[in-house]
């Protein structure tokens, strides 16, 4: 068991983390390169950058957007805040980083981490329930849309039990292993699923705008490629 835990928090963790970072960097690089390529070829290079920036910031911090479907929005906002803050700012995690890499940063008070962890778990479940209740979201949902919030909730729930052994009905080691492994799985899933929006979101508004900036002869070039130039309408 000990060896397994060591493996999970050692090589497996580093592999998962590296996979996530490289995967996200790949997403970023591809997207940035594609944006650059469109802009270079665009017939009209004027872009409403200010508007794009405003929209981007508004959606990164969607304070004035929660009015639309308030309960669902609030659940989602809580979920996001919790899942971003806890893994990065939990004192225990920072201590591990410090031991391994001598890097360190300010931590959340333990009580705040506890509360946020509980919020993460509850809001993940609530998201799934709300998704399955509303007709529109139920109609759109794929398997991953239900599965991902629940998978993400596992390291939070197990982490909480690891931190509070008095409430943990299972052997500590098992819970600890489960925590580390499930966290690693989430890291691997990040670049493979829609969670990659965590790095792409700052670019999506720009993407939606640049796509309207056609290359100068895009239409006629497509016509030539399809052998349709001169073909009657």
């Amino acid at each position: 068991m000990e060896a397994l835990i060591e493996w999970a928090r050692g090589p497996f963790f580093w592999a998962a983390l590296t996979f996530m970072v490289l995967g996200l960097l790949r997403h970023l690089a591809i997207t940035l390169w594609d944006i650059f390529r469109v802009l270079r070829r665009a017939g009209d290079k004027n872009m409403p950058y200010k508007q794009i920036a405003t929209n981007t910031v508004k959606w990164l911090f969607p304070i004035d957007k929660v009015g639309n479907r308030f309960v669902l929005s609030m659940t989602s906002v809580c979920f996001h805040i919790a899942v971003i803050l806890v893994p990065i700012f939990l004192a225990g995690h920072i201590a591990l980083w410090k031991r391994g890499t001598s890097l360190s940063w300010p931590a959340l008070p333990n009580l705040a981490s506890d509360i946020l962890t509980i919020i993460a778990v509850i809001s993940a479940v609530a998201i799934v329930i709300q998704r399955s209740m509303a007709k529109a979201s139920r109609g759109l949902s794929r398997f991953q849309d239900y599965a991902l919030p629940l998978i993400i909730a596992i390291p939070f729930a197990t982490g909480f039990l690891v931190m509070h052994p008095q409430w943990n009905p299972f052997p500590f080691n098992v819970m600890f292993l489960l925590h580390v492994v499930s966290a690693n799985v989430v890291l691997i899933l990040v670049p493979l699923t829609k969670i990659s929006h965590c790095v792409l979101l700052p670019l999506t508004q720009l993407v939606s705008e640049v796509a309207w900036h056609f290359p100068e002869n895009a239409g006629s070039k497509v016509g030539v490629a399809l052998g349709k130039e001169g073909e009657p309408i």
């Binding site: 997403h27 979201s137 759109l140 849309d145 796509a211």
Partner: peptide, 25 residues
Amino acid sequence: AAVLEHGSYGVALDTYTRVSAKCAR
């Protein structure tokens, strides 16, 4: 294929397929 090659849509389709959240908002 021709439109992706000569047009500007690829970047949007690529991004949308990666991140579409299916949230129904």
